[in-house]
Design a protein around this nucleic acid. Structure first.
Lengths: 187, 187
DNA sequence: GTCTATATGTGGATAGAC
DNA sequence: GTCTATCCACATATAGAC
């Protein structure tokens, strides 16, 4: 039931927003009384935190896999982009909640999630830096470059349509080429 | 007072989120009773809609200025990117509300805002298409390319720090170069 | 592990005086 | 244009039975 509640909450927090979705809404859909929810979660925030924590954990784990198993700066960055895009197109609801409902967390929980997010971004920034040092990437502020890449990939969660006429792989291909080579035809 | 209420609402909707911010919160900060708000706005949603509408209006106007006053596909796209970035770094609160609180709108109001947003995106897509036809941009799905560019620029609203050590112009410069030429040093 | 019943607060919104 | 007073619905959360 705890898992069921979580997946209902993901659906409803995504659809209506955390504050617009009540404990009753979740209970109704689970077919239990709202008071029964408090057996599984001490309060509403813990339910939100559980979702955010799991999502960030999974994302960070997938990044760790890549940095330990793939060699070469450019290949690493390509794999990271592919992974980030896949993750955000596959788990659209969770990542949209992660991006818009952090204000629903109290201070400690917020800190914990922000630290995970910072760790993730920092690892990518280090790879960009490495590429600049190795002379394969153009020397531009790594913080800004990282933000640009991460945010554009993250936002696929908001517009990607699994039933649309473009597959995830086609989008990954376009994004990768755009990031590495840009828009313009070189003379 | 109506303007004052709007600017307080922008601040609070941004900080706490639309549903987490009550009419009382806004009234308190304005130094009036909550019932007095209903003299200016018929309900809470109209206040949200007023903010979103004005923001989208301003954004669309600025885009129209560019497409009528600037010649050349590449120069137009550069100006659009510069404008979009400037707008999103200058009006961070409003655009973040625009991006996260659409669910607070009822059907008619939502349709109206979405149409404005679609118009905006469509104009950019047309310019990308034109650049492809003219042989200056690489032939990739214009919808995807537009989304990539627009979303990465929009998200500066979430991380740009006006007090940070990078100016808006420096960020615009980096973004423009990344979009047109990518990350990699060409051999 | 889920139920019924309930406490308590606060939400958006309206009526009518000044 | 702002006030006081009030309505009613619904929010989160708890107590205690089954």
């Amino acid at each position: 039931m705890k898992d069921k509640l979580k997946s209902i909450a993901i659906q409803l927090f995504y659809q209506k927003g955390y504050h617009a979705c009540s404990i009753s809404n979740i209970a109704d859909r689970a077919g239990i009384q709202k008071s029964s929810i408090y057996y599984h979660y001490i309060n509403k925030e813990e339910l939100l935190y559980d979702i955010l924590k799991e999502t960030m954990d999974d994302l960070n784990k997938s990044l760790h896999e890549i940095t330990t198993n793939i060699e070469g700066t450019e290949e690493q960055l390509k794999a990271i982009i592919r992974n980030h895009l896949n993750f955000h197109m596959e788990r659209q609801k969770e990542v949209i909640i992660s991006d818009s409902e952090l204000r629903g967390l109290t201070a400690d929980n917020l800190r914990s999630i922000l630290r995970m997010r910072d760790d993730y971004d920092k690892k990518i920034k280090e790879i960009i830096k490495k590429g600049i040092d190795e002379g394969i990437f153009i020397n531009r502020d790594p913080r800004v470059v990282t933000n640009a890449i991460v945010t554009m990939c993250t936002q696929t969660s908001t517009w990607f349509n699994p039933l649309g006429n473009l597959s995830k792989d086609e989008i990954i291909d376009i994004y990768t080429k755009m990031i590495f080579d840009g828009l313009k035809i070189k003379k």
